[in-house]
């Protein structure tokens, strides 16, 4: 952050950071890169299996329930709500990062708190969805849903669904834990002492990555 960006700078002549970011932030980017390939491997193997199958269950049929309204057929409404919650919490996270750049401790705490709430709301929604599908008979190794063309389906659908949304949900969970740690550190004034809020920015990168992955999970499982 505290680096300058002079025009015509020779970045690779040595003696300066050619990426113009702090070490931890660069490493966070590389970690997210590797994590992206892990998720990519999951989603692409799902695609491979789906391409190799003669048919597949219809997501609009599977994911059509909404809590409270009950079994009313509102396809994809609930998962769209989850998407909205996650995007919203991404916005509050950016606000926390912005407040950190202004050295505004109170505002950082407020926005971090809202981000954590958003993360918990998302996890709650996912818990409801998993419970609901479990009671419909879906679990690892069990798939009650028929293929879209009426043929007998395999268990691949539920195996991939629970593995990938579970892996993503675990990322959300660890993101919430990281954000809680950051909130506590902000509250204790640790970042005021060090003079910058770069840790908030790194936690923010991770949190946005979780949102980014959800965008792909949403498309692959619910839309395609």
């Amino acid at each position: 952050m505290a680096h300058s960006v002079p025009v015509g700078q020779k970045w690779w002549s040595g003696g300066k950071s050619p990426f113009n970011v702090e070490y931890g932030k660069l490493m966070m980017w590389y970690f997210l890169m590797s994590d992206a390939f892990t998720f990519g491997a999951f989603l692409i193997s799902y695609g491979t299996i789906r391409f190799s199958s003669y048919s597949w269950p219809d997501p609009n049929e599977v994911f059509r329930s909404f809590p409270v309204i009950g079994q009313m057929t509102v396809p994809l409404a609930f998962v769209s709500l989850m998407t909205f919650i996650l995007i919203m919490s991404s916005v509050t996270m950016v606000m926390a990062v912005g407040a950190g750049q202004m050295q505004d401790r109170k505002a950082v705490m407020k926005w971090m708190f809202l981000t954590i709430l958003g993360g918990l709301a998302f996890l709650g929604c996912q818990a409801w969805e998993w419970t609901h599908l479990y009671h419909e008979g879906a679990w690892w190794g069990r798939n009650p849903f028929m293929n879209i063309n009426g043929t007998q389906s395999s268990t691949n659908f539920s195996n991939f669904f629970f593995t990938i949304t579970g892996f993503h949900g675990f990322h959300v969970f660890s993101g919430v834990i990281i954000n809680i740690c950051m909130l506590i550190k902000t509250w204790r004034g640790d970042f005021e002492k060090t003079g910058h809020y770069l840790m908030i920015e790194k936690a923010g990168l991770y949190w946005h990555f979780v949102d980014l992955v959800w965008v792909f999970v949403f498309t692959c499982f619910y839309l395609l």
Binding site: W11, S90, L205
Partner: peptide, 12 residues
């Protein structure tokens, strides 16, 4: 935008 990559330098 959110991850701010669009506003970093080209190397990154």
């Amino acid at each position: 935008e959110f991850m701010h990559l669009g506003h970093e330098i080209k190397n990154l």
